[in-house]
Design a protein around this nucleic acid. Sequence first.
DNA 1: ACAGGTTCTCAGCGGTCTCTCAGTGCCGCT
DNA 2: AGCGGCACTGAGAGACCGCTGAGAACCTGT
Lengths: 224, 224
Amino acid sequence: MRVLVVEDERRMAAALQRGLQAEGFAVDLAHDGEEGLHLARVGDYDVVVLDIMLPRISGYNVCKQLRAEENWVPILMLSAKDGEYDMADGLDLGADDYLTKPFSYVVLVARLRALLRRGANRRPAVLRAGDLTLDPARRRVSRGQQPIELTPREFALLEYLMRHHDEVVSKSEILEHVWDTFDTDPNVVEVYVGYLRRKVDAPFSRNALQTVRGAGYRLAGDGG
Amino acid sequence: MRVLVVEDERRMAAALQRGLQAEGFAVDLAHDGEEGLHLARVGDYDVVVLDIMLPRISGYNVCKQLRAEENWVPILMLSAKDGEYDMADGLDLGADDYLTKPFSYVVLVARLRALLRRGANRRPAVLRAGDLTLDPARRRVSRGQQPIELTPREFALLEYLMRHHDEVVSKSEILEHVWDTFDTDPNVVEVYVGYLRRKVDAPFSRNALQTVRGAGYRLAGDGG
DNA sequence: ACAGGTTCTCAGCGGTCTCTCAGTGCCGCT
DNA sequence: AGCGGCACTGAGAGACCGCTGAGAACCTGT
């Protein structure tokens, strides 16, 4: 099992490395967020241990970035005791578990094994774009804490846009994937985009659902 | 699995060859950038290990050249420890991963395997010419950090020029590929080049979009 | 059969984009 | 210096695109 440990404190990092190697893990170290992000991208690890306080890029952002890239490697976050960061935020960003310093090896190893058992690549149930979330299984949509009611067609359209958030999708692509036809009047897409805007953007003064004239639509990943 | 190792230091090259062969790779060696570029072009390798400091053509330029030719073979770059070159630049130029000397075989082989798993031919999302970037999927253009708004026709024209940056493209070529006609008044190209200059060059005091009198236009690859 | 909700069509509008045209400027050649 | 040709630019007309309100068709459960 390959573990990536991202931790800037040298002594802590070395201790973790020794401890985990003794447990039979293959351990790589990264000493700042940038290196950690890079290694996590290319290294094909089974699990990542990620400190929050890091030089260059914070652990938060490393995690966020990886998830944005559809990289679902299990992540265990480490935080200092003083609660400057709220660990719940970490879980929101896509971490799978967390530990507060100081902690014992026994606990760390137990948590890691639990993560490995639960298995990697479990794509999270919900889609996110900024504070907009959509849960395909439960058919629920909300902006922040506020739930939003959508009709089936509206839901399907938003789901498609969220699966391609930040990309521009053309009306014909949308027709093909959401309406399952290709020779329909594209105006129906315009109408439904209008409906969606009135439900997911306008009440919150957002502009996530953007028109790209001559090309299609783009759902801004950061909520616009 | 076929690996091309481009490395001028004889002892290092031989050591890499032996080490990788022991891992079951078929290894070819090149001892300068020119030879490396040539072999990479014709050799159909699964992965290329490319030193940065090379005689004749630097590893940077080998990489850049290959990518410019739409050759997306996975490239792992090697750099000396002293950070004369910033490895981030290497990634910008289209390398897929990098290692800093000295490194262990274990790490090298792990990274190579990771690269091979991830697979080649993952065409990079964005086009670059100096600090000008264009992302076809996201339909975004920016000069440095500054985003630029373009109309569909302007976008299509700039995309075509960027795909042929540093080359001279004639107005008739442009008409054929961007307007999809060939018997239109070439003046429309002049008009749109003018529009583009006002958006991507003038506000930044650049001159990337150059006129080649009697021949066409050239987009300078380094931002002019 | 009816009510309520959903899907889709249609036509009009406002704004943007595209392209043409004509006049001007610039370059290279003799 | 003068000339011819090539490239640039401002203005404007028309086409095109996307948005919206209204309403018809449809579907579903009572």
